[in-house]
Design a binder for these strands. Sequence first.
DNA 1: GTGTTGACAATCA
DNA 2: CTGATTGCCAACA
Length: 103
Amino acid sequence: MPDYFASRVLDLVEAIPPGRVMSYGDIADYLGRGGPRQVGRVMALWGGGVAWWRVIHADGSLLAGHERDALRSYSGEGTPMRLTADGRPGRVDMRRARWDGVS
DNA sequence: GTGTTGACAATCA
DNA sequence: CTGATTGCCAACA
């Protein structure tokens, strides 16, 4: 069972609007405790039940090993993407997609 | 108590 | 833009 901290993390992830994302550090900072690694740990253990693809690295890179699934979800939500040097979508445009918890 | 590890992050070369 | 370095906090052996 998720502890209190994990519950707060999962609730917040559920609150992220479609088409928006938050970084691990953002979530930790928003909750005011723990750190990016703790958030990552929570997601690794119990993130399967929420919109895990809306939680990514601070630089906009996707979850290693799940890029395909994430991209499929993003295309359906209209998440703003940035193109890699290869010219294909590889990371999220954090400047526009980042969600602060209010708007 | 001590050392390692990890779905991380800011900084610098 | 890529890679290395350092800082971070909690879990685990």
